[in-house]
Structures are given as C-alpha cells and as structure tokens.
Nucleic acid binder design. Sequence first.
RNA 1: GCUUCAUUAGCUCAGUCGGUUAGAGCGGCGGACUGUUAAUCCGUAGGUCCAAGGUUCAAGUCCUUGAUGGAGCGCCA
Length: 483
Amino acid sequence: MTRRTKIADLIRTEPLNTEVLVKGWVKAFRNNQFLALNDGSCAQNLQVVVDFENTDPSLIERIKFGASVGARGQLLESQGKGQRIEVKADEIYIYGDCNPDEYPLQPKKQTLEFLREIAHLRFRTNTFSAVFRIRHALAYAIHKFFNDRGFYYLHTPIITASDAEGAGEMFRVTTLPFDKTPRTENGEVDFKEDFFRRSTNLTVSGQLEAELGAMALGQVYTFGPTFRAENSNTTRHLAEFWMIEPEVAFNDLNDNMDLAEDMLRYVIQYALDNCADDLKILEERLIEEEKSKPQDQRSEMNLSDKLRFVVDNRFERITYTEAIHILKNSNQNKKGKFQFPVEGWGTDLQSEHERYLVEKHFKKPVILTNYPAEIKAFYMRQDEAKEGVPGPTVSAMDILFPGIGEIVGGSQREERLERLVNRMREMHIPEEELYWYLDTRRFGSCEHAGFGLGFERLVLFVTGMSNIRDVIAFPRYPGNAEF
RNA sequence: GCUUCAUUAGCUCAGUCGGUUAGAGCGGCGGACUGUUAAUCCGUAGGUCCAAGGUUCAAGUCCUUGAUGGAGCGCCA
C-alpha cells in the first residue's frame, strides 16, 4: 500500500520513477487529461496525467474544480513545458465531489470583497492560501526570534478585571442574564453575582502583566489575541487581533528601538528566505492590480523590493519635536496641501502627516520618539526637560511603515513609583485597582521597556494586501462576526 | 461615529439625454478536440436592475429613506 506524499515533498525531492500517492483538490482539469492538484503544502500544483481512454468516463466526469481527489501512479519527468514533474495516474480516487453549479468559487479572478463574504472557502484560492502560509511563517519567525534571544513566551490572561489599561473600549465578559440582571440596593448591576464576582472584560493588552513577568524573568513576550470594542471602520483595524508584546528589564528607549527594529528586520528576512513562492504569487497579484491604477498612483517598488528595502536600511529615528519641525517646514504644509494643517507642538499627528514623513520625506520606516506626555499613556517614562522642547515628553516610540502607518507602539516604562503615581492621579487612573502593577515599582523596581506589535499589520505589510480583514482567517469588525 | 462612492446574470462589469424586448466577458450546461498550462473551438440556458416610497405619459436611469459593501477620517496595533 503506497502512503500519501505531500506535493511539497515531491517537488523538493523529485523521486522519479517511483510509485506515489497524492491527495488534494482540483485546481484545473484541462483537456480531460491534465489535472492540476493542490494539497496546500505549497503554492505549486502537481500535474496529474489521467489516461482518459482507459478510465471510467463516470469517474472523469467527477473531476471538477474544487473536488477532493487522489491519484496513484508513477512520478515522471513531465513531457509538457510548464512543470518539471508529473504523476502518470494508474488510478484516480474521488473523495469529495464538488458541484460546479453550486460551488461559489470559480477558476478565475474574484474580488477580495466577494471572497471575504465566503471566508470559509477563500483559503482555497491561490491568494489566500499564500497569505495564510506567510502568516504562519511570520508567527513562527517571531517565536524563533525571541526564543533565540532568550526570551520567555508568557501567556497573559484573555479575561481581565482591570479596565485601566487605557487602550480603548472593552468587550464585557459576563454570565449574568440580560433580562433580569441582579441589582444592588442602589439599582446598579450587582457584579458580585457574576461569574468572577466582579466586572470583567476581554483584554486590550497584555502589557501590564508582561511587565510583571519581565521583573523576574528578565525578557518575556506575549503573542495572543487582543480585543478592542472601538467602532473602527478602516483597512487597518480589527475588533479581534493578535499582538506581540515583548517586555525587557534593564532596557531603555534605545534598546527598545533596537529590539523592535531587529525583530521586524529578522521576520521579514525570514519570509523572504522561506516564502518565495507565496510572495511571488502575491507580487504578481499586485502587479496585475497596479495595471488598473492611474500612472501616478502606481508604486515604484514591487513587493519583494519593498521588503528587501526594509531589511537593508536602518529605520529613521526622529523625535516628535523634530517631526513637527519637518512637517511645518514642508512644502506640502506651506502650500496648504494637508487637509489638517500642522498645528503647534502638542497635538497628535494626523495619519496624512505620518504618511508624509514615511512615504514622501524619508521614504523608509520611521521611528518617532519622545511624544508629548499629554497624548500618551500613563505608564510611559517621563523625560527630563530639554532645551527646544516646549513641553513635557515621555520616552515613547511609534514605528511607522509605508502604507500601514503605526505597526509598533511602545515605550520605556515609568519605573519611579512617585512619578508613576502622580501621573496616574493626573489621568484619573484608579491606583487601588492597579496595586499589583505598582508593587513592581515598590519592590526591586528597575528601568525597563517594551512595545506592542500588531501582528496583522505586519502580515499586511509582508503580503502586500491592502485590507487587514484579508490577512486574518475570520475577521471581526463592527457588524461582522460571521464564521 | 463622520464623509464619500457603489449595489444590474453565478462572478466581473457596460447600459448614452428618462423612451420599444436590459447587454458583454468569464463561469455553468451540451458537444467537438486530445500533451494541456486561466487550454481552445461551436452551441445553449441564465435577470425581483439592493429594498421601500416618490416624481413622471414613461424609471435600471431622477428624488427621499433604509440596508449592504468599498474607500477616506477619527480611535489605535
């Protein structure tokens, strides 16, 4: 009995003139004779040559686009031009029929919007199978990067009682009945009756818990799902997404930037080294897409050039204050071409400003640092006053990528108890609720830093896809939790 | 949440100034061909023009409201 071989292995080892058994799905069936088979193990299809004169016609009839089939036969050098090897089938097996009358997928170009509506089937397209193989490779590369550097993978809770993380609206987690919620004497919902005996939510960030781990394990990272109940309708936001959050004791802002930059460069290089075929599929897709765009909107670099460019060049590092200066003096601003004119120091940058810095001015990834304290989170380390900087700043850093915007947000953390508590009071963050966080500053506190990397934004960049809903299997966003 | 664009065959789209019976390509189905590469060739079926209301002699086409989808903005990773 021949054992099944994966197509990727056959293509790699090419065991010519041996009997093989392959199983997969029909991608094309030409001429009643040439069956293109894909089993998901790689981007390439394997050609199976069917001896249509000596095969039961009722069997051949069932070889339809999308059907699950198997073939047993000799692996031979291909007589045709498009491929090196092929299987000359002695036997064809039909495992699952696929009625083309009802099957929504067709062997032709389909819009991403249409495929999103049939996300349960879109894995079967070349584009999405490539995206999800690359997504896997990137996830693996991230674990490898951190593991090789002596980081510990820390699983932080998905359900949290703290709503003080300040990273956005949260989804409530409860087992209380909606029709007759238990009430206290004051008429408020009585969370003492709830599952956890208190109000709980889905996490918006594992950072605070990661900091706790870093204060003993030294270097930790999280890689898990994150939930934001914001009513965000953009190509770069999801209600449920995956985030990587390293946290390192004794690191300062510069170490933090180095770590983030090394990591991004490493994982992108990993994709270049290990996902060439899949990247090629996506690159060709992009080239086709570009053709329908007006000349001035076409990008100068193709996908692999863009990735190599990021790997080969240091990111530009500038302070928020310097960025404001560049923006104010830009021709774009002077000519009034920004929809939002660059205001004075202290307000957050609009995405058109970030895009200008990354895509027009520096033409490479940019790390913006030392933002005004006013517009950043309470836990970020307060900078010493500096000449030429109009107001208090914090040791924050945002990494901006072309086409994506913010891909990483991080900071050196405020390790000085008194400063941290003062800041929390100013920002009305309840100290009692975060006593455990403050304990790290009470006992053996030290300099430390970390950041959050939006995994889907990374996948977006590497795959060259344009909507974040197309780089996660089953996207959750306002009004949509299908599948 | 705001702004804006779209919604016509299974899919992608065309449909002129409001005017007769709404078209194409791909896909499907039937057939031919048989070393093909999104095979090719011939034939064929397929429509609640997103929904409701309105204007008009007449609406796929104009107006109002709503639904869904895209893009941009805000919030951020």
